[in-house]
């Protein structure tokens, strides 16, 4: 007799995020139609997590302290501003086992570190170069356009702040 199939009655928290799935989808859309891919492909044995929404001031030690609650941390790579080489609010955490990474998604993702709700996402693995922000000014893209003031992440978004400044200057000029 076959093993009776069992499906989860509520959503699982240890699945790749919409971001990861969406990223794959986009690629597929632009290229020639191919076999639909399983979103878990490439992540089946993933031991690395992308961790986002960190404060720029959160240290490796703090990250280690929290993330080692899910298993021994093999490697921790801080995300850095491409130009200043200072932390820019994300990191990669690598565990020894896939299960530890899944447990981390389930138990730590969406909880607080350094008093901020952090985001975790399963990742295919760290590669040299990925530790740098991909935003125009060196940080993360999301910190370019952010309209809210976030003291933990350098205030307003950089592009947004520049834009504001320019507009204010123009208005000031117009008033004269």
């Amino acid at each position: 007799m076959s093993i009776p199939e069992r499906r989860n009655t509520v959503e699982r928290l240890d699945r790749p995020s919409a971001y990861y799935v969406g990223k794959n989808k986009k690629r597929r859309y632009n290229e020639e139609p191919e076999e639909p891919k399983d979103p878990m492909e490439g992540l089946r044995d993933a031991t690395t997590l992308y961790v986002g929404n960190l404060s720029f001031y959160t240290t490796e030690e703090q990250i280690h302290e929290l993330f080692s609650k899910c298993g021994e941390v093999k490697r921790l790579v801080m995300g850095l501003d491409r130009y200043n080489k200072t932390p820019c609010g994300f990191c990669f955490v690598e565990y020894y086992t896939h299960q530890d990474a899944l447990d981390c998604l389930k138990y730590v993702g969406g909880t607080k570190l350094d008093e901020r709700i952090i985001r975790t996402d399963l990742d295919t693995g760290f590669e040299e170069g990925r530790q740098y922000g991909r935003g125009k000014s060196g940080g993360q893209v999301r910190d370019e356009y952010r309209e809210e003031y976030d003291p933990g992440r350098g205030g307003y978004g950089r592009a947004y702040a520049d834009d504001q400044r320019r507009r204010e200057e123009e208005e000031y000029g117009a008033g004269r």
């Binding site: 609650k69 298993g71 447990d103 389930k106 138990y107 909880t111």
Partner: peptide
């Protein structure tokens, strides 16, 4: 049964 941090997260 599970890692201690799971029970932490439930209480949170």
């Amino acid at each position: 049964e599970h890692k201690l941090v799971y029970y932490h997260s439930v209480l949170t």
